[in-house]
Amino acid sequence: MSKLSDPSTWPDRYGDSLYRHALVRLRNKEQAEDMVQEALLAAYASRDTFAGNSTEKTWLFSILKHKIIDYLRKASREQPIYQDIEQLQDLMEENFDATGHCTIDISQWSDPDKSLEQQAFWQTLEKCIAGLPPHLATLFMLRELDGLSSDEICKELNISTTNNLWVMLSRTRLRLRQCLDTHWFRRNEEVV
């Protein structure tokens, strides 16, 4: 393990960036802390497998990523993710009639890119994400932030078909759109 630095320096050198990585995906401080700890301990235990093809930091991050997926897999065993998606079922009925026709008023958002510069927008987005069924939210973040492939996600999380996954992702987007519409874009129009 000559290529690796002294593990007792890892928390100081990499702790912050690993923690932020976990925190934006799990949105929970304790869980994020646990993930960092588990990742570093696992890294130490498998230090002999470090081939030096990547930097130490990249290697630690890849271990953390796997730990987060493991966590999600265990969590989804306790409460299967398809139950999460059932919670979004009434959303479909709200948005579409029996023939699949859109029944809500989808009006244009004015200058959405400008919202990206506002702290309050990001706070609203966080609230909307927090309002999603939790495992689905984490899954969605892994997909959006890390670009995990559909096959990978289905295999890891025991989702029977990629089609199921795509339905989950589409409903998550439907829900987020509606939440931002109600709590950000329409509210802003009222103020103006």
Binding site: G15, V36, Y44
Partner: peptide, 18 residues
């Protein structure tokens, strides 16, 4: 909007475990 740093206590705890 998120903490930037892992707390000193958490770092210390992990170091001890290592």
């Amino acid at each position: 909007l998120v903490e930037r740093t892992l707390s000193v206590e958490a770092k210390e705890k992990i170091r001890e475990k290592l």
